[in-house]
Amino acid sequence: MSAVVITVTSGKGGVGKTTATANISTALAAMGKKVVAIDADIGLRNLDVVMGLENRIVYNLVDVVEGTCRLRQAMIKDKYLPELYLIPAAQSRDKTALTPGDMIELTNQMREDFDYILIDSPAGIEQGFKNAIAPADRVLIVTTPEVSAVRDADRIIGLIEAEGKYSSDLVVNRVRVDLVRRGDMLSTEDVVDVLAISLIGVVPDDESIIISTNQGRPAVLQNGSLAGQAFRDIAARLTGQTVPFMELDGHDSFMKRLSKLFKL
């Protein structure tokens, strides 16, 4: 086994990196994959609360790198899935506590034992982003259909391309179907057209995300959640499956969903 390291990043803050990391990690683990999710947002840790594991933290990422504990001691076992682990960020430190080399070394130690290692990147283009991106085999760029988020995504794509070694895919998050329909939100096509990178997921704006974050139980674990379904689709595509994109712009979406349900 040799894990694929996937870094989730965005440039702009608040577009859903942590939610995406938690949900995609959980979905991959639910498919039977061995998964570690690493929170690389040192000083602003949040992946633990989104996954509902905040009460189980003893050691963190910086403790591992500094040799305060062994790697296994900092890996928190998920509540819901047996093959999912979280390595939390340090809360009382800052991004200078890590280097890109630390992240490469850490992930190399885990590659043999896992199928996927997901890294939740901090916002921005500084040291924290560079740490998160250093070990990546693939990069998922999360954006929302807003001018500011797409602009920052473009900047990030430029920086990743300059490194010349990553394959990046786009996740368009929080799409409001009603707004797109009446011409008041950039459509997924607009965003893909402007950024010119391959699309791996379209996630509708969905209140189930807020509820699941309140509960600390990722939306992919709920059957009725549309956003959860979109994240499960992304996980499936990451494993190489071909999954059609959810119909989010058309009026016939309900019928299409029905027919998919009955495998017509």
Binding site: E146, V147, V150, R151, V180, G183, D184, D190
Partner: peptide
């Protein structure tokens, strides 16, 4: 014009300048 078209135009322009 609807705000979607305005957003796309502004985005295209600012990205050219950024790049």
């Amino acid at each position: 014009t609807n705000s979607r078209d305005v957003a796309k135009d502004r985005l295209q322009l600012v990205l050219v300048q950024d790049r």
